[in-house]
Design a binder for these strands. Structure first.
Length: 420
RNA sequence: GUGGGCGUGGCCUAGUUGGUUAGGGCACCUGGUUGUGGCCCAGGAGGUCGUGGGUUCAAGUCCCAUCGCCCACCCCA
């Protein structure tokens, strides 16, 4: 096998696409109920956009981006940056004080692939721009929660606040001094993280580090009054809407732009990639990218992770019959008639197919069965002589004559409609 | 970037201490029904055993190299 897809890039084959569509259709339905409008974005942007929004020193920007170096353009590693760029570029903030937008599509990160992690993966992103109201946070999480619930997935919501530029530095200092005194006990990764990104030590998976960090200062207790008020209001909103969540003071997010509210919907059924949906608030980012003072919050859902979970549930989705009528033509003349009859039925809206190779009737019946055909219209020498085809209902095995011509076409369409 | 595991027809796989034409299941095709699907039966097509080299009278099996995939670390949806 010479030509194959790149490592970390996957074909989504027929059979699986059905599940993907279920996920996406359900998402569009839920997003619509929450009054979100779709926005479609390019997947290539100037490298600078991602560097400035995600953060120059994040792993994503430092080593995971697919960049055309000579052109200084990059395949998007996430959607928020592009969405904000479009929001600013088209002055969407002028048209409506609060914009609620969603987008669906592929993202690219050059990471080592593993379960639930690909180099091209797909996300559904929802963002609310122009409001700092904590109810927006609660509403957005509610939307995510509803979608996951309607997909039948068992996930839990974890909530934290990362503070803001006013209070995070003080917390950082206090955390740094705490870590400083325990350097020797930390794992190698955490020693490194203590320097590069101390908050990251909080969510280390190493049990030893977890034990140490259990006594670390809590970000939730270091919030400034404004952030504390906001955080409490978010929780009140979730409580009011009946959304169950748990506070997790160890949860940090990887992207630089997050502030205040951060959250993750996590599952125990995906190996180590446990987050199926995650997001947070990013007040100040729009401004930082050259836009107005518009606060924002959003989340991203990993579609292949959702699909993996749905596949695990083994809820065998009976594929619906896909074909209304299979026309079995026996012999050259019948096959020729079937060919034009098929087109007439398709024009009238029916799903029709036939065996263009006109193999044996037995073979054609098998094909019809496999295609999930509800009816088979048989046309052989007898039928040609009688000027009427034989219509077989595949479920009931009943057969009846259908005359050629307009009257017959009407009967076929009736049978088709009744079968659906 | 770092570790571990695995590569046998389209898919899942058997292959014992190296020993005749690499076996089975699913799927596919044909026939059993001179024109009737699902079940069953019979037959058929389909494989450079990831690739290259080495050891040997003999390699799917042993050795080396290489490529690919998977899982985990890292990171994150």
């Amino acid at each position: 096998m010479k030509l194959k897809a790149l490592n970390g890039f996957k074909d989504i084959l027929p059979g699986e696409t059905e599940l993907w569509r279920q996920v996406e259709d359900r998402a569009r339905d839920v997003f619509a109920r929450f009054n979100f409008a779709e926005i479609r974005l390019p997947i290539l942007e100037k490298t600078e956009l991602f560097a400035r929004s995600i953060g120059e020193t994040t792993d994503i920007v430092e080593k995971e981006m697919y960049t055309f170096i000579d052109k200084q353009i990059t395949l998007r590693p996430e959607a928020t940056a592009s969405l904000l760029r479009a929001y600013i570029e088209h002055g969407l903030y002028v048209q409506k004080p609060v914009q609620r937008l969603f987008t669906v599509g592929p993202m690219f990160r050059h990471e080592r692939p593993q379960q639930g992690r690909l180099r091209q993966f797909h996300q559904m992103d929802a963002e609310v721009l122009g409001s700092a109201n904590p109810r927006v946070d609660a509403e957005l999480m509610t939307m995510g929660s509803m979608l996951l619930a309607e997909l039948g997935l068992n996930v839990s919501l974890e909530l934290n606040s990362l503070g803001c530029p006013a209070c995070r530095p003080a917390f950082r200092e206090s955390l740094l001094s705490f870590l400083g005194s325990r350097q020797d006990a930390l794992c190698e990764d955490c020693k490194r993280r203590s320097v590069t990104n101390p908050l990251r030590v909080l969510d280390c998976k190493n049990p030893n580090c977890r034990a140490i960090v259990a006594d670390a200062p809590s970000i939730q207790e270091h919030l400034c009054p404004e952030c504390a008020t906001h955080f409490q209001a978010v929780q009140d909103g979730l409580d009011q809407l009946g959304i169950v969540y748990s506070l997790n003071k160890f949860m940090v997010r990887g992207l630089d732009y997050y502030c205040r509210t951060t959250f993750e919907f996590i599952t125990a059924d995906l190996g180590s990639q446990s987050a199926v949906c995650a997001g947070g608030r990013y007040d100040g980012l729009v401004e930082q990218l050259g836009g107005p003072k518009a606060p924002g919050i959003g989340f991203a859902m990993g579609m292949e992770r959702l699909v993996l979970l749905l596949l695990q549930k083994e809820q065998k989705i009976e594929p619906p019959a896909e074909i209304d009528i299979f026309i079995a033509g026996l012999g050259g003349d019948a096959s020729r008639l079937a060919f034009s009859l098929m087109q007439g039925l398709r024009k009238a809206g029916a799903r029709v197919t036939m065996d263009l190779d006109a193999r044996s009737l037995k073979s054609q019946m098998k094909q019809a069965d496999k295609a999930g055909a509800r009816h088979v219209l048989m046309i052989g020498e007898e039928e040609l002589a009688k000027k009427a085809g034989m219509l077989r209902n595949m479920a009931t095995q009943e057969q009846r004559e259908i005359p050629f011509g307009d009257e017959g076409l009407r009967m076929l369409l009736e049978a088709t409609a009744a079968g659906r």
